[in-house]
């Protein structure tokens, strides 16, 4: 075993301190050390996107990041998406639109889609499809996933404008 290094992680707002091999992948740190098993592994080659988490709000593939590289970064996983018992609009939309079947790719899909909506709150179908090009699903044919992301964008838009009205 190579020399261990201290790894400081901040995940879903909670601080963690590990002593780990430098080769420890972020996805294994999340799953095996922090018990956050919602982030999945579906391949060895950074293709499938099941391991997608947010790095300072941007989606990345946690199977291709060393845990030590996440030092000083705000990491968000699927477990951090629902707030105060309220599902994230994407979670709600995936549920309403049957955007999942086996559920294995779902956390990664939601995290990738959240990255898109953060940058582009009102995407076209084409933009949604390309934003998900790094996430594989075998069950749904993507049809209902794309629909869910478009619906979530509408709901999110509605939420934002409602908030604006309140503050105005």
């Amino acid at each position: 075993m190579s020399k261990t290094v201290p790894v400081h992680l901040r995940v879903n707002g909670v601080e963690h301190q590990l002593d780990a091999e430098p080769r420890l992948l972020l996805v294994h740190a999340l799953r095996d050390h922090l018990g956050l098993t919602g982030t999945h592994v579906g391949c060895d080659t950074s293709n499938c996107g099941a391991c997608t988490v947010h790095f300072n709000g941007q989606p990345v593939k946690s199977c291709t990041v060393l845990a030590v590289q996440a030092d000083g970064v705000e990491v968000t996983t699927i477990e951090g998406m629902a707030k105060d018992g309220e599902l994230h609009p994407l979670q709600e939309a995936f549920w309403n639109d049957h955007g999942l079947q086996c559920g294995y790719c779902t956390p990664g899909m939601i995290m990738a889609a959240a990255g898109l909506l953060e940058r582009n709150p009102n995407p076209s179908e084409h933009e949604v499809r390309h934003a998900l090009e790094g996430n594989l699903c075998r069950c749904t044919g993507y049809h209902n996933i794309v629909k869910a992301v478009l619906d979530a964008a509408k709901t999110k838009g509605a939420t934002v404008s409602a908030q604006r009205e309140v503050s105005a």
């Binding site: 799953r31 098993t37 999945h40 699927i78 477990e79 999942l100 956390p107």
Partner: peptide, 11 residues
């Protein structure tokens, strides 16, 4: 499943 609480074998 949408909240990451599913329990697959690896979990």
């Amino acid at each position: 499943l949408i909240t990451g609480k599913g329990s697959y074998v690896e979990d």
